[in-house]
């Protein structure tokens, strides 16, 4: 695997919250169209790694290269713009804006990018249909089930056509059947659009949707493909 193939590559990341190090020399690389699972016990630094990769958190040291640009050297505004344009996000909880309808929620990232409302909502509706929740468009998040909500969230992560999708325990709050459905729809859609997926999970069955896995333990990462 040569570095030039990598869509995103992180080298020697260090990040501490207070005295406890969350990342202690972690590495990571992902190619376009690849699904990589980030695994490890709770508190090992999985989420911090994801936040650093996505440019949400600036690491204390180390670099995150995305298409040759170092995220750690960017301003907050530049990183925000990158997140709006190139990345998509799915989290475990609390991610849908409760007062917006489902279609408005999905249209949100497009509108953040300046797309007009009509067009944004039209594209959002297509994605809702593709994730088999088209009939929920006019409903508010409080009126739908957890599994439906998570599919709406996946639609929202995919609607901008992101290059990288960051998913932090996307099935954590779902039962097995809904979890499977969400994973399948997410990875199918990512495959269709050639997007890379960084998938943080502690469930092996969810990780089985990945192409390979990286294990984080005590803030250090271990790429199991290179080991093998």
């Amino acid at each position: 695997m040569s570095t030039t193939d990598n869509l995103m590559e992180a080298v020697d990341l260090h990040k501490a919250y207070g005295p406890t190090p969350a990342l202690d020399g972690a590495e990571f690389a992902i190619r376009a169209g690849e699904v990589v699972a980030v695994m490890g016990p709770s508190g090992s630094g999985k989420s911090t790694l994801l936040h650093c990769l996505a440019g949400i958190v600036r690491p204390d040291s180390g670099s995150v290269l995305y298409r040759g640009r170092d995220l750690t050297a960017m301003s907050d505004a530049e990183r925000s713009a990158l997140r709006r344009g190139e990345f998509g996000f799915v989290f475990q909880f609390g991610q849908l804006v409760p007062e917006l309808t489902c279609v408005e929620n999905v249209a949100l990232p497009l509108r953040l990018n300046g797309t007009r409302r009509k067009e944004a909502e039209a594209r959002a509706s297509e994605w809702l249909a593709r994730l088999e929740v088209g009939e929920l468009a006019g409903k508010r998040p409080g009126e739908i089930s957890g599994g439906q909500g998570q599919r709406v969230a996946v639609a929202r992560a995919l609607v901008t056509g992101p290059r990288v999708i960051f998913a932090d325990e996307p099935t954590g709050a779902l039962d097995s059947l809904n979890g499977e459905r969400v994973m399948r729809l997410l990875t199918d859609a990512a495959r269709d659009t050639d997007a890379a997926v960084v998938l943080v999970t502690h469930e092996t069955r969810v990780a089985a949707y990945s192409d390979r896995e990286v294990v984080v333990r005590d803030g250090k990462s271990r790429d199991m493909e290179r080991v093998a």
Binding site: T204, R205, A207, A208, V215, M224, V227, A228
Partner: peptide, 20 residues
């Protein structure tokens, strides 16, 4: 034991990916 776990999981995952 952790090392053993990671290697074993990697092996398990290989099969699990096929099944998936």
């Amino acid at each position: 034991a952790a090392g053993l776990l990671d290697t074993q999981r990697s092996e398990h995952l290989r099969l699990m990916r096929e099944l998936t």
